[in-house]
Nucleic acid binder design. Structure first.
Length: 781
RNA sequence: GCUGAAGUGGUGGAAUUGGUAGACACGCUGGACUUAAAAUCCAGUGGGCAGUAAUGCCCGUACGGGUUCAAGUCCCGUCUUCAGUACCA
């Protein structure tokens, strides 16, 4: 590290963790190598730190926040506990503001953008530092309402707060210890579920109000989360409902700092109308002005500063699994050292079992050849470790998002890498992902991590873009229709659906393949399915059938509601399946899989085929005769609509358009090549197999996939007249064919002299006649 | 609670800038062909009232208001469903 002469005694401020101490260049030079390395970790984008992690004992690994759903692991649903561990983390929080700002540049669904905004969770406020009476320590808190600083009547720390033990007075020790223990025992999930119960304990210690110097009781309470802000709050019961509830419950004072606000029942939380009172220098100010002044005064006395807080936590980057990229890191005197780029990649070692070791080390702890020889720059046997030249390698591996965050940049060029990802030329040409079709479940994981990586890569000028995915469509899931049979509790007896009310029953999933369209169960097939059902008893409906219950659920093997598309394929063909899926409805919409209606798509394809053939003999019959005006109109109307639909991912309406086109051309008895050939190309992305077949019958040697998209010619759609809807007070009564080149006045005259108009008016004189040429005529009165 | 999306016939769904609500299908009803069935084709199909009929009128896009010549579409409020998220200081 180089310092200028001036910097030697000047404190250097850099973007890094808040807790990092400031020092001068001379001081830096005086630090030991170890200390310097420790400090540098506080600045690095990827750093090793003792962090509170989500530990899943069953999976033997830590999990990222987004890998936990409802307090249990997303994979397997196992318990997850908070635990301190030394882990690699990535400083995604350093990019929080940019990740938030750039959301606006994305063409993503509003819901997923909002999910990311919430996950980043920006809140603007201030840090306020409280002195503790009789202690050297200070307690910083984060607040979004520094304007209510004179409403502080107590403080609350999270039970896990590091100062709890030190601050607790001897006579409160027993109560505090018991409370901390009880909270630790409760799982995160329980704590979340139980929002209503108010609990907490007084520590016996007092903080000091930064302005009034009044003593403030310090409590601990589990409504304060260790993981957010500083893990401590200044409690303003008059302005925050949780503080209010806590104060009421423990009979703590509730000073009112709002003018004309009734706080007898609830806290006053409306910022916009708040006027501060009983607050010394803040008296009479609005929320906005009071916040500014409070921060200014806090900074003046060194008891706080304006601060923006983010909910977004740094992401844990270590996994205790085998299958993941190994870290190019070895340890010298316990300090991580990176392996130089030219020696990469290092490859996963062979191990016997892909499980954690008996002592709880990650699977790589089982490897025999997993040490780094810093002289030879090679991976060598663990036996050679002497901590002089040969050092132990990192045992953790990288998580899935180490690869998923950037892989698409390598797709841009197939040749050997000339640069980090691809040549500048390829990167400039391809830029980023134009369209990402995927599920919204990645909203707070992969899609955020990837945005972070790409911003970092952009900063280092490895890629020319700031965002990985320009446009995203969250396709809807095809759901399954599960079938349930009702088992009488405690008996090996099943009752048909309508009889189930008479018993205490438990629904059991039955394989949907045993059930027909009228919800009747094939009992024999069901009996043969499981040994335990073999001798089961069945109570039938009065008509002798056995009916199942139905419910729409996610398609899943465990729910036995998976339908195999192969069956549809063999019955109707792949084109029918493909088109039917598109025809079901909008791409973004989740919908249950139902084959009702598939025959419509199938018969459409047969109709299409018949358009090219004569009679039942399958004789190919496409003529060279020029197309009629009407046929050209149908074709170009279709080209226009399909073109627009593809742009809008509105495939369901394209299918309708094809149906209309084929119906109209069939009615016109059109078999002109001039029409059918471009129509075949148009339909080829929707029904590729049949299109390819017709294409070859049309005399082409090459695949239709190389054919150019038909060009829309608006001249075929030009009309000379329009069938105008004639409305009276907004209600359409009849239609009238009128030339399009008529003036408004001429149209009005034509309409008003029409006998039907006279009949409708029945002697009344219209107040107004609205004529929108080419659209509508509305007569008011 | 908060955030987001949505609510249209018996069903899936159309209506992209306010301008003919229900396209296109499924289902259903009737008919043709057939010994019969399948396949195919034709006609009808939002609800109600009147009429033998042609047809006419009324009501209809979750509910209640509003803006407008005109509202499924825009505005305000309410309800319901789905999804995400949550003691965030």
């Amino acid at each position: 590290m180089l310092f200028s002469k001036k910097m030697e005694t000047q404190i250097v401020k850099a973007v890094c963790d808040d807790e990092i101490a400031l020092f001068t260049a001379n001081q830096w030079a005086g630090f030991s190598y170890e200390t310097q390395q420790q400090i540098l970790l506080g600045y690095r984008l990827t750093y090793l730190a003792e962090t509170e992690v989500n530990w899943c004992a069953e999976l033997g690994t830590v999990l990222a926040n987004d890998e936990i759903v409802n307090g249990v692991s997303e994979r397997g649903g196992y318990a997850v506990v908070r635990k301190k561990m030394k882990q690699w983390s990535m400083r995604i929080s350093a990019y929080a503001e940019r990740l938030l700002q750039d959301i606006d540049t994305l063409q993503w669904s509003e819901s997923i953008k909002e999910t990311q905004r919430n996950w980043i969770g920006k809140s603007v406020g201030a840090t306020v530092v409280f002195n503790v009476k009789g202690h050297e320590v200070k307690i910083p808190v984060f607040t979004t309402r520094p304007d209510t600083i004179f409403g502080v009547s107590f403080m609350t720390l999270a039970p896990e707060h590091e100062l709890v033990a030190a601050l607790t007075t001897p006579d409160q020790k027993q109560a505090v210890d018991a409370y901390v223990k009880a909270t630790a025992k409760r799982s995160e999930r329980e704590r979340m579920a139980d929002v209503k119960t108010i609990s907490g304990v007084f520590t016996g210690a007092y903080a000091q109000h930064p302005f009034s110097k009044q003593p403030i009781q310090i409590w601990i309470g589990d409504y304060v989360l260790a993981g957010y802000g500083t893990g401590a709050v200044m409690a303003v019961p008059c302005g925050d409902q949780r503080d209010y509830d806590f104060a009421k419950h423990f009979d703590l004072p509730i000073p009112n700092v709002f003018q004309n606000a009734d706080i007898s029942e609830l806290a006053f939380t409306d910022k916009d109308t708040a006027v501060i009172t009983n607050s010394d220098f803040l008296d009479g100010l609005s929320y906005k002005k009071a916040v500014k002044l409070a921060i200014y005064e806090l900074e003046k006395i060194g008891a706080g500063a304006g601060k923006t807080n983010y909910r977004l936590r740094d992401a844990v980057f270590s996994r205790q699994r085998y299958w993941g990229e190994p870290f190019p890191v070895y340890y010298k005197d316990g300090l991580p050292q990176t392996i130089a780029v030219e020696h990469l990649p290092i490859q996963l070692p062979k191990i016997e079992k892909y499980l954690p070791t008996e002592t709880g080390e990650p699977p790589l702890g089982r490897a025999d050849i997993w040490a780094w020889d810093a002289q030879k720059c090679a991976v060598v046997s663990n036996n050679l470790i002497d901590n002089q030249n040969v050092f132990p390698l990192e045992l953790n591996t990288m998580p899935g998002w180490a690869g998923s965050s950037w892989y698409f940049f390598r797709y841009m060029e197939k040749a050997d890498r000339p640069a980090v990802f691809a040549s500048q030329k390829a990167l400039d040409y391809w830029q980023n992902v134009d369209l990402y079709i995927g599920g919204s479940e990645h909203g707070t994981g992969h899609l955020l991590y990837s945005r972070f990586w790409v911003k970092f890569l952009y900063d280092l000028q490895h890629v020319p873009v700031k965002e990985p995915f320009k446009k995203m469509i969250n396709q809807g899931m095809i759901l399954g229709e599960s079938a349930f049979v009702y088992r009488v509790v405690g008996e090996n007896k099943f009752v048909s659906k309508s009889k189930a009310q008479g018993y205490t029953t438990q629904p059991v999933h039955a394989d949907v393949s045993f059930v027909n369209t009228s919800n009747e169960l094939d009992i024999q097939a069901f009996k043969n399915w499981r040994v335990e059902f073999k001798n089961a008893e069945f109570e039938l409906e009065d008509d002798g059938s056995f009916k199942v219950g139905r419910e729409i659920e996610k398609m899943s093997k465990s729910k036995y509601n998976v339908v195999n598309p192969d069956d549809i394929c063999s019955q109707y063909g792949a084109d029918t399946l493909r088109m039917y899926e598109m025809f079901l409805g909008p791409l973004e919409q989740a919908k249950p899989w139902s084959t009702a209606g598939i025959s419509g798509v199938h018969s459409f394809l047969k109709k299409l085929w018949r358009l090219f053939h004569l009679g039942t003999d399958e004789v190919f019959n496409v003529s060279q005769t020029p197309a009629s005006k009407d046929a050209l109109k149908v074709l170009h109307k279709t080209i226009k609509k399909v073109e627009d639909d593809i742009e809008n991912f509105s495939f369901n309406t394209s299918v309708s358009t094809f149906m209309i086109a084929v119906n109209e051309l069939t009615a016109q008895k059109c078999n002109s090549k001039e029409i059918l050939e471009p129509l075949t190309v148009l339909i080829s992305p929707y029904a590729p197999h049949i299109a390819e077949e017709l294409w070859s019958k049309l005399g082409h040697q090459d695949s239709i996939s190389g054919a150019g998209f038909p060009v829309f010619d608006p001249s075929h759609l030009v009309e000379s007249s329009k069938e105008y809807p004639i409305s009276f007070n907004g209600k359409m009564r009849f239609k009238m064919e009128l030339p399009l080149d008529m003036s408004k006045e001429e149209i009005e005259t034509a309409v008003m002299t029409n006998p039907k108009t006279i009949q409708q008016l029945d002697g009344r004189v219209p107040k107004k006649v609205i004529v929108v040429p080419g659209k509508i005529i509305n007569i008011v009165g």
